[in-house]
């Protein structure tokens, strides 16, 4: 198992209950959607994966290592095993496409030789060949998200976490991004994607975990609950 949640609850200091006794297991190589209305707890669950938030109760394991008991100094190592794709892309506006990707490798201390070969590789993989020297402001929303995905892939993650990656994109572009994510998953990377784009998720025929009011209300292997 790659990801294990055991009886995880999260209550924020203001008293809001974001997650209520969640238990989930995700295997290597899976593609999993986290669905549910706003405020259902998707974002909190995603943030716990890379330990931006800690659970109030319960245990979380990533590749059999406890995320909860982990020392603060081990958190960077945990995060290097995952790539994160954001709804708002979070690209650095003053860096080019290639620099945005190489930045992610530099800050984890990758060798310059590795950076030189890997950056064109992932840019190619997301279909942005020829745009290496463009700035994010010169790209369409879909292209910007491709840069975000290239950046997430640069450090060869075990797990790709995408938090509403199509939230700011139109339907056609969203479908292209989904194809790209499926492709990455086929090549072996586990993908967890939070979304509330019902049509998109239904068309995918992948595992869907439904959240509502901080609880898992449904977990279906091929998204049957959405049919």
């Amino acid at each position: 198992m790659l990801v294990q949640f055991y009886n995880v609850s999260k209550i924020y200091p203001n008293g809001a209950k974001a997650l209520d006794d969640i238990s989930i297991q995700i295997d290597r190589g899976e593609f999993v959607f986290l669905m549910g209305p706003s405020g259902a707890g998707k974002s909190t669950l995603v943030k716990m994966l890379f330990r931006e938030e800690l659970p109030t109760r319960g245990q979380i394991f990533l590749a059999s290592r406890s995320v909860v008991r982990m020392k603060r100094s081990d958190v960077p190592k945990l995060r290097r095993n995952m790539g994160i794709v954001f709804q708002d892309f979070k690209l650095l506006e003053r860096k080019t496409v290639a620099e945005n990707v190489s930045f992610a490798m530099e800050v984890v201390g990758a060798s310059s030789k590795d950076i030189r070969t890997r950056v064109p590789e992932v840019i190619n993989m997301v279909g942005l060949k020829g745009k290496e020297n463009s700035f994010p402001g010169e790209l369409s929303g879909g292209e910007q998200q491709r840069v975000g995905i290239a950046r997430a892939l640069s450090n060869r993650p075990l797990l790709l976490i995408a938090d509403e990656p199509t939230g700011n994109l139109d339907l056609n572009t969203s479908q292209e991004i989904m194809e790209l994510l499926f492709d990455i998953n086929r090549k072996g990377t586990t993908v967890i994607m939070a979304s509330h784009a019902r049509e998109l998720v239904r068309a995918a025929r992948k595992r869907v975990i439904m959240l509502q009011n901080g609880r898992v209300v449904d977990d279906s292997p091929n998204g049957e609950s959405l049919l």
Binding site: L78, R80, K90, V108
Partner: peptide, 17 residues
């Protein structure tokens, strides 16, 4: 701050930042 947040999520150590 955006850059720092990003670096943290990518897995930079505090000292590297």
């Amino acid at each position: 701050r955006k850059e720092i947040y990003l670096m943290k999520l990518i897995g930079s150590t505090d000292w590297f930042i």
